[in-house]
Design a protein around this nucleic acid. Structure first.
Lengths: 215, 215, 215, 215
DNA sequence: TATGAATGAGGGTTCATTCAT
DNA sequence: CATGAATGAACCCTCATTCAT
């Protein structure tokens, strides 16, 4: 009968199992629609134990956000090959991003879809993570700009919007890639590079599109 | 003081007020967290009246999605200046998009954040709208490609991913622009154009970024 | 095209239409499950008009009970051929009873099924009607006993139980006949006569079944 | 005073108490008019506990019907003395029936009055029980016919109508006996036997009442 | 005469959370 | 370490009933 329930396991392990169950349920149903009953059942423990370890639904969801944030950022950092040209770094980072989100759809759903709808505290948490990602990307861009001896007057504000757009496009593409299983992480990354690289290059070199000048 | 409660107004008008209240509450709290009590109170009516006119929470939310979808698409279509080069059209369309979403943050939140987490029926509705937007953008791209005598072998799949990324970036930037009030719609549009136009151009002309070749 | 709603008809007629609609809805759904909305809609009038004429749901239901009680009793009285032997009278009365209930199932459902479940006031009303029916039957039995020069010690209590049982059996059979459309009123009446007449005869003649004596 | 509220009892026991309360409230008020609040209060528990154990009002009512059906049938079967003549068996069965219904008026009301007005699913359940009762009675009649070497051409249809009428009369008398407390179960049974036995005998011997022939 | 507009009150159901063992 | 038993608070929805015209 397979599935023998292991009793009396150490706290750390139990906690991990609960978190995994929580991420799955939150990812599938969203914060409000997920119930503590569902989570406890999926984790194979009684509800009071969930409360004993994780305190409340709110804290549990926060913990999920933190866990998934850290995992995502770690995946991107580790996947980003630290040597070579900046474009190569961006490419490897993006590929790692898409690989991670595709392999962990519930975690990604928690971050991208649900954390933003559960109210202030959660938004703050996921925003912090996003900020970190944007900062990381910004670093790559700045480095690339230095390499290219690009426009030294590249404004901080412009870089911010730019990184924002890049991350946003990546997030959107991640959703797309998760939905349509035939799209691989590498394809998504390539699409985004195709879409973005030339624009970045122009921008770094001070060429800008403007309503007056046109293409 | 101010806001004198008007009693006994015709149904159509009451319905409009209720929808406005609903969009506001749904936008702020999300589908599950919003309560019909809150909506009724904000609309200045009793709950039964909301049910009498809008039937159920689900139908009400659907109606909100439809209303906001139509408003957004109308704003983009009307804002897109139909003459001139494709890039100009894209620019005006984007500006209209950012202007509309910035001026109507709750409606945009309903579409972008909440409709995607409320279950199948809502996803279907907002997907239809997104599809329409993507199709519109695709049309502009194709037209631009024709103007540029671009690569005739531009694959359908690539165009799809591209439009997806563009719309995604726009959506993400809309969130950014809404959060940070100092960012105007025009700035957002310009950022996106800067970011995207050259990439689009390269793609249309058959130049692609690839991991082997680099920038 | 068909069904032109007649406006401004005299009160009496409107009231009749409302009552007809009410009997139909109450008969199909029961007192609690029936809604004033349903009744008003079926009657083709607005709800306030129903209240204007019939005052309240409770009064409306009471009126329905009275109306159907009177109709049923009138049908039985009129159907009972006043001449001839008592058994013939009973037979014609029963036939009239089954004919009426079969032809007016909603009215019968109101009396037999729903009036008994709507609380004290209604029970009282339908009990009064039943009492009248039982008294009528009792009259026939007494007359038959006189004809037969039967046991003069026939106890009042026994006659009461007897008439009660006869009416109860008829009511039960009416439900059965209404359910199974292939059973005609005459068949039902014959079944009941077969079932009952000999027993009545024995009783009137002082022969009784008793646990000690057996058949 | 008295009735000290016992907290924390095992599930099976609590469930029994809830069912008892439910039968009482449903029996007194009917399905629609009964509220889960009333039931919970009478059971001395909070409403959520009722839902936790019994799932929904509908399931709770169904469970009540099943419980009372089984109890009634068991009472009749156990009360029917399996030896002796068929009439004796019928007599003891009827006595058991009246004893049980008189001692459990709410349960009987649930079965006889309320289950028939709560919509299809309940009707089906109580119909099944009635069918079983009718089959049981039919068995006795057939056995009696065999004993009496009676008319072998006794039609199935006639036996069905007959058993139906007998059960209907018993049901009706049960209501009467419940209303008037001075009527004992034995009296009710005797009345019914007096009323019915001779008629049954005639029928089995092929003598029938007919409108042409008279008594 | 007749109605469109509106609501107070209550019912079924769910859920995060806690207590006692 | 772990759980079966239990609940306060809210939420969606409906309905009999009335008001203003």
């Amino acid at each position: 009968m397979g599935e023998v329930r292991a009793k009396r396991m150490p706290r750390a392990e139990r906690e991990r199992e609960m978190m995994a169950a929580a991420v799955r349920v939150f990812g599938e149903r969203g914060y409000r629609a997920a119930s503590m009953d569902d989570i406890a059942e999926l984790a194979g423990v009684s509800k009071p134990l969930v409360y004993l370890y994780l305190n409340s639904k709110e804290e549990l969801f926060s913990a999920c956000i933190r866990r998934e944030s850290e995992a995502l950022i770690a995946a991107v950092r580790e996947g980003t090959i630290g040597t070579g040209d900046a474009d190569r770094q961006l490419w490897t980072g993006l590929t790692a991003f898409f690989t991670h989100t595709a392999g962990n759809p519930d975690g990604w759903a928690v971050l991208h879809r649900h954390a933003r709808t559960g109210g202030e505290p959660f938004v703050a948490e996921v925003t912090a993570m996003r900020e970190e990602l944007v900062a990381f990307v910004t670093g790559l861009i700045v480095e690339a700009a230095r390499e290219a001896h690009g426009d030294p007057e590249l404004q901080e504000r412009e870089v911010a919007g730019l990184a924002q757009a890049l991350v946003g496009a990546a997030e959107s593409l991640a959703g797309w890639a998760n939905t349509d299983e035939s799209v691989t992480a590498k394809e998504a990354a390539a699409t985004l590079m195709n879409f973005a690289w030339a624009g970045l290059g122009n921008l770094m070199e001070g060429r800008r599109w403007s309503p007056e000048a046109g293409a």
